[in-house]
Design a protein around this nucleic acid. Structure first.
Length: 268
DNA sequence: CTTTCAGCCTGACGGC
DNA sequence: TGCCGTCAGGCTGAAA
């Protein structure tokens, strides 16, 4: 499932092919996504030049001359460059063709993603916390935001107001590396431990980007290739298996409706 | 204010 | 083999 490293990997894969190109056409085959694809998208953007392609949180933003497209890969989405003769697959919902011949296909079986146009700001981007890999996400943020909070630390760091882009996989891994139980109350954790956790959040995300992201079922980058970070996962998806750091068995619980795996011995 | 939870959706998987 | 129920999960908005 695409989290921040997977979206960043996608961005790096598609950016060279579409940056500064003119959109020659868009075909929407299935417009019923998380939110309906903007009505008349093709007519609006055709002929416009891509001025910039960037990422904010788990969103991809394609800036055009008169506005921007906001793309989210949801749970099962991928965006890849294909050859003109590439066979159309089931769930290939949107196709964007560029003046240089590049073709970008949006594929999303579960349709939790989105592809929206706006002439001005996208409301989805307001009220987002800092980027985890930027200096805006410093060592005091988690500590200060968490005081008197009773919410468990795992959903706390997965909250987009706290810091963006930390999904279930990387929250689980960062907590394991930090030796913190995911169900501890956020407000009870010391500044010292939050300093450690902040470092591990940055570290695990950066490492995953280097590996091209995590491919669990179907994630592929802009060129159709899988990521390799799944080989590094210590706890995510490993409930009931042996801890990589001790002899213990990993435990699985539910926190905020999400499965959470941790080692009861290594994480306290 | 904080916290919880339903709902959106398809495919994989387990039980029978 | 095939049917059916359950689960996975990012995000939003409403309820508690």
């Amino acid at each position: 499932m695409p989290e921040l490293p997977e979206v960043e990997t996608t961005l790096r894969g598609i950016e060279p092919a579409i940056a500064l190109q003119v959109i020659s056409g868009i075909t929407v085959r299935q417009g019923s996504l998380r939110w309906p694809v903007t009505e008349g998208l093709a007519q609006i953007v055709e002929g416009q030049r891509v001025t910039q392609v960037r990422r904010r949180a788990k969103y991809l933003i394609i800036n055009l001359e008169h506005g921007s497209m906001l793309i989210h890969l949801g749970m099962s989405g991928s965006l890849r460059l294909v050859q003109p003769d590439a066979e159309l697959r089931k769930h290939d919902h949107i196709e964007m063709r560029m003046g240089n011949g590049a073709i970008l296909r949006y594929h999303d079986p579960r349709r939790f993603g989105c592809w929206l146009w706006s002439e001005s700001d996208h409301h989805q981007l307001s009220r987002l916390g800092p980027e985890p890999l930027s200096d805006d996400f410093g060592i005091k943020r988690l500590y200060e935001l968490s005081r008197k909070r009773k919410i468990a630390v795992k959903p706390f760091i997965m909250d987009n107001n706290t810091v963006v882009g930390v999904g279930n996989i990387y929250a689980s891994e960062a907590l394991f590396r930090s030796g913190i139980r995911p169900d501890r109350a956020a407000g009870d954790i010391s500044l010292k431990l939050y300093t450690v956790l902040t470092g591990h959040i940055k570290e695990v995300l950066a490492a995953a980007i280097v590996q091209g992201g995590t491919t669990l079922r179907d994630f592929v980058n802009g060129n159709g290739e899988p990521g390799y970070f799944q080989q590094t996962l210590a706890v995510y998806g490993r409930g009931g298996k042996l801890c990589t750091g001790c002899e213990g068995v990993l435990k699985e619980i539910k926190l905020g409706q999400r499965s959470s795996v941790f080692c009861p011995r290594c994480q306290r």
